[in-house]
Design a protein around this nucleic acid. Structure first.
Length: 106
DNA sequence: GGTGTGACGCAGG
DNA sequence: CCCTGCGCCACAC
């Protein structure tokens, strides 16, 4: 598993996240089956500009505004279930690829 | 090889 | 909700 391979998997995974839904860094890490939440976040900071990074949030629904308030604008535009002006309702927005244990969009 | 850091996650106070 | 401590893996010095 080269770094490019890992980066590719993470990026394609994030792109698979449908609008109005989100995945936590840990979920993406588990979905790709390699590395951990740190590595996912790392890839995002490097190549995240090519994917809907705002659909990737912290395990507690915290938005990555460490960059820009874009995330909030996007979630508001996509209709993501928010519990707070900058927090996502994980129990509602949490998504998992239909090719995994989730078995569906929820 | 050791130390410090980070778009993280969990548990305790 | 707030802060703190530990674990995690990879990168930079």
């Amino acid at each position: 598993m080269d770094r490019e391979e890992y980066v590719e998997r993470v990026l394609v995974m994030v792109e698979r996240i449908p609008p109005g839904r989100v995945m936590s860094y840990g979920d993406v890490a588990e979905a790709v089956g390699v590395g951990g939440p740190r590595q996912v976040g790392r890839v995002m900071s490097l190549e995240g500009g090519a994917v809907p990074w705002w659909r990737v949030v912290r395990a507690d629904g915290g938005l990555p505004l460490c960059h820009d308030g874009r995330a909030l604008a996007q979630h508001r535009a996509e209709g993501t279930p928010l519990r707070s002006p900058e927090r996502v309702d994980m129990e509602l927005a949490r998504w998992w690829p239909p090719d995994g244990p989730g078995g569906g969009t929820g």
